[in-house]
Design a protein around this nucleic acid. Sequence first.
DNA 1: ATAGGAAATGACTTCGAATGCAAGGACGAT
DNA 2: ATCGTCCTTGCATTCGAAGTCATTTCCTAT
Lengths: 341, 341
Amino acid sequence: MAVKKQPEANSGRATSYDVARQAGVSQSAVSRCFKQGASVAPRTREKILAAARALNYYPNAIAQGLITRRSNLVAIIISNLTNLYYPEVLAELTQRLSAQGIRVLLFSLAAESDVDEVLDQVWRYRVDGAIVAARLHPEQLAAFADRGVPVILYNRVGEGEPVSSVCCDSVSGEHALVDALVEGDHHVFGIISGPADSYVGEERVEAARRRLHQLGRDCQIVRGNFDYASGDASLRDLMRITDRKLDALICANDLMAIGAIDSARINFGIEVPQDLSVVGFDGVGPATWLAYQVTTIRQPVRRMTEAAVAMLIERIERPELSPEQRLFAGELLPGSSARLG
Amino acid sequence: MAVKKQPEANSGRATSYDVARQAGVSQSAVSRCFKQGASVAPRTREKILAAARALNYYPNAIAQGLITRRSNLVAIIISNLTNLYYPEVLAELTQRLSAQGIRVLLFSLAAESDVDEVLDQVWRYRVDGAIVAARLHPEQLAAFADRGVPVILYNRVGEGEPVSSVCCDSVSGEHALVDALVEGDHHVFGIISGPADSYVGEERVEAARRRLHQLGRDCQIVRGNFDYASGDASLRDLMRITDRKLDALICANDLMAIGAIDSARINFGIEVPQDLSVVGFDGVGPATWLAYQVTTIRQPVRRMTEAAVAMLIERIERPELSPEQRLFAGELLPGSSARLG
DNA sequence: ATAGGAAATGACTTCGAATGCAAGGACGAT
DNA sequence: ATCGTCCTTGCATTCGAAGTCATTTCCTAT
């Protein structure tokens, strides 16, 4: 007995030709049948759909992508998924893109500036666009422009280059925090910054520092790196170098604020907020936990992700659109980690 | 003056033919030049690579996927990215797959059982495999098998079906926790379960309940849903329905344990662990925060993700391999949220 | 019955890279 | 020189669906 080829054995591999044969029509008809608004007679359509169902046919998106030059893929490039803030953003972005019929190719980086390692994969997959929450050099931005791939930066800006971006306003946020702290009669300020390569980190710290200066308050700045442990470590640093008694602590994000609160209470026996007020930034989940209730600026994640997706899709459809920067104000969330005015 | 077509104007769109023309060779040569182990003369290779660099050429992965029937895409289907535990898993998986030259198509679900909505997209993109941390019905598993798409379930099992999976051992983990609590002389037990559609949740609770029963301890079980708020809510429920004074609380995950600890301390003035011992499961970041130091079972995420990726790649390359279930023991992490024996 | 026009359909080409096959070239052994 | 081998290279075809264009079908109005 000879071995026989089984053309229909693997039902997952049916092509439009298989469906066409089964339905007694041409491949073109099948293609049209799956395309919105194409001209197909009702009876033919039914025959085709029945055949497609019988064969378990799903159009091959790879082949579609090749011929239409639209992959319906968007790259999301994120640096630090372990950061509490980004998972929420990622989930929102993915679900919104899905709802628009766009799939997400995820690139997660070990460090903020590891973008180069993944870019060539981004080019190879001919993504229709990209949303980037990582640091891009001007040359990297230029590469996107050259290839006509629209990019939206998330909480980043195109240092010098005109790039579309969606950001939460660090300056107004920090102003609100500083103003509230000053009104709450705080005098000795400490600031825990983010890592050196973080754009928002630097921006937040700089905004806070300036506002403090305007209001005639001085401050000590120590460098953190956005994680819990560095909230603790940085607080220790501050306690060591500050001569007067610290009474207000501004942290570049919530996670460090939480680390600092725990450290103050547990390692130093400092009462928060009675002896020390601590504020953060982001409005991540744990910030609202009973033990912390961090006074912070909550980023409007839903509106920001919605804007990012809308802007990206607009630019995929109309590449000639010029870049646009959208700045969203955060909301001051008065918690019980700080005595405010 | 006539409008002129500019073939090389958009440098991002160079094809292997463009490179071939520039280098004075055939398209086949270009293709071979980018393929590992193909026979190309050193001089030719250099000419081609120079041309490719000049034209900014990157092979079109879409076209490659079509002809080779290998998309080099793997679907990752995750239900609850906001769950603290999964972002870490996702980041690990993505980076490991990247290192193997495989790209991640991310599908994030609003609920554990929303898989059907994304499956047709999974079929359309002809992914080479999938890693799933969501509930799959037998029919859905069968669909993967039909199409010859290998799946690895992550902390899930193929209820009845033989499917490959990577899990952290709930039973041994809960036994360890229960044993330690019983040795610590606890008598009145409460359990906060996960949501009804969570496999691991049910498994953990069941394991704990049985072990308690074996050791002659009774327990009250209330249903939570894995988030912080439900730790608080469930603790309130327990306090209401329990007549004797609760002295040990077993939570199906760390997040609820944390919620319960906060609630006990702040809403009820109960000292943890003096008056109440609380244990969790997972070993997420916040579990080790100074304020909590939750006694828990830490899942070996690195080893688990490594195994998942290895098993998947094996099965992509050798589809005939039979399913394999790998169970990893978690590590008892004795924190200060429980008095142990 | 017939022309006119719209709708439906199919043949064929295209997207970009991979690969089987055959032809050409280099080189060593005789 | 000559033959045989192995290494390079190009030609032609293929993957699966979309879309152009030409053709056929079906209505409708006259």
